[in-house]
């Protein structure tokens, strides 16, 4: 499971990198959803080797409908 909490310094770094200017209240609120995001990140990580293909975009083919 990815980290479920975040410190002020890390938060400040991530927001600066994203170029977002938040109020203190928004920063505090954002900390409360880190756990929810961590749970989502855990769910997309499966035991899969490096050969597992990346599908860079979804484009169904006619044969998918067969």
């Amino acid at each position: 499971m990815p980290p479920t909490t975040i410190g002020d310094e890390t938060l400040a770094h991530l927001l600066a990198e994203a170029g977002l200017s938040l109020t203190d209240a928004q920063r505090q609120e954002l900390k409360t959803v880190v756990q929810g995001l961590a749970a989502m990140k855990a769910r997309v990580r499966q035991p899969r080797g490096p050969l597992a293909e990346l599908a860079h975009g979804f484009a169904p083919k006619p044969e998918d409908a067969a």
């Binding site: 997309v44 899969r48 979804f58």
Partner: peptide, 8 residues
């Protein structure tokens, strides 16, 4: 990883 999960 989300995109790879999408494929699965």
């Amino acid at each position: 990883q989300a995109v790879r999960r999408r494929r699965e």
